[in-house]
């Protein structure tokens, strides 16, 4: 097998990994702070893709506008969901969490089917990002490189935001001890709304970025949700660094298993998850085990 082929597969794995990273970052931050496992996260991803389709096709705005506008829209939807529904979960037993977020997922999915139809919508790679770039040793599609760059910038930005800013410190404090943050004068319910909005926005952004390389269709969120959970669990629930590392690893495993052993491509990541959990029950960098 040619090295160039392997390299391009490696890059494909990175790009796929990037989508997982963006999706799992939101999921893991929401879990770490609010203690909510959000099964509607994939539906928000799908909403991001449909928002991009709508903004590009019906409002005739360019891709850059999609990239900025759509995550904001999805974040707004997320914040409304948190204020009206998710926030009721904090005092309820865990199975309500499952029921409610699963329910939200189906409602969003069916609403999209009713509005746009079940068959999906075409979404082309924006003109500016079409074609390939010469990397010296191979040509690689511009748009895929673009996803790599955006994800790298965004992960770095998110890290800076959480570690270095005042709002980031509040988010960390809310994760450490929400009750104490409240007793020290922080309006913790708005902080939680903001965090859920942030998670939703990241998910929406992943949806916009994925729209040109995947099919924009109602089930796209459901399909990717399970893999995203695998990423979050392997990375360690609540850990940002863990999500980034695990997202990239899972991207590679999926891509290379499709190349070398297609029948095993769907099971291999679960085998890997089992292996990780047996040796490290809390995942790579998790503070608590998923099953604790």
């Amino acid at each position: 097998m040619e090295p160039v082929f392997l390299f391009s597969q490696f890059f494909n794995g990175l790009v796929l990994g990037c989508i997982y990273v963006l999706l799992s970052l939101g999921l893991t931050v929401v879990f770490g702070t609010l203690g909510v496992v959000n099964f509607a996260h994939g539906a928000l991803y799908m909403l991001g893709a449909y928002a991009a389709y709508t903004v590009a096709t019906h409002l005739h705005l360019n891709f850059l506008a999609c990239l900025i506008l759509c995550p904001v829209i999805v974040a707004g939807i997320g914040m409304v969901l948190e204020k009206c529904l998710i926030s009721k979960l904090y005092k309820l037993p865990h199975y309500y969490n499952l029921l409610l977020t699963f329910g939200i997922m189906f409602i969003i999915q069916d609403a999209i089917k009713i509005i746009f139809g079940p068959e999906g919508e075409p979404f082309n790679i924006p003109d500016l990002l079409q074609g390939a770039v010469n990397l010296g040793f191979m040509y690689y599609p511009k748009y895929r490189l673009f996803i790599l760059v955006v994800t790298a910038l965004l992960s770095g930005g998110l890290w800076l935001f959480i570690e270095k800013t005042r709002l980031g410190a509040i988010i960390r404090a809310g994760t450490d001890n929400a009750e104490m943050a409240d007793a020290l004068g922080t309006n913790i319910s708005w902080t939680f709304t903001l965090i859920f909005g942030l998670g939703a926005g990241l998910s929406g952004l992943a949806g916009v970025l994925a729209a040109p390389i995947q099919n924009v269709q109602p089930a796209m969120g459901m399909d990717i949700l399970v893999q995203t959970f695998v990423v979050v669990i392997i990375g360690g629930m609540g850990s940002i660094g863990g999500s980034i590392l695990a997202g990239l690893v899972i991207g590679q495993i999926l891509t290379f298993s499709i190349v070398f052993w297609p029948p095993g491509s769907t099971t291999l990541i679960y085998a890997f998850m089992a292996l990780v959990l047996v040796t490290r029950p809390r995942g790579f960098f998790g503070r608590v085990s998923f099953f604790e």
């Binding site: 009750e179 020290l184 004068g185």
Partner: peptide, 8 residues
């Protein structure tokens, strides 16, 4: 009142 209001 909420704790954060009392703190304020």
């Amino acid at each position: 009142l909420a704790p954060n209001r009392i703190a304020k």
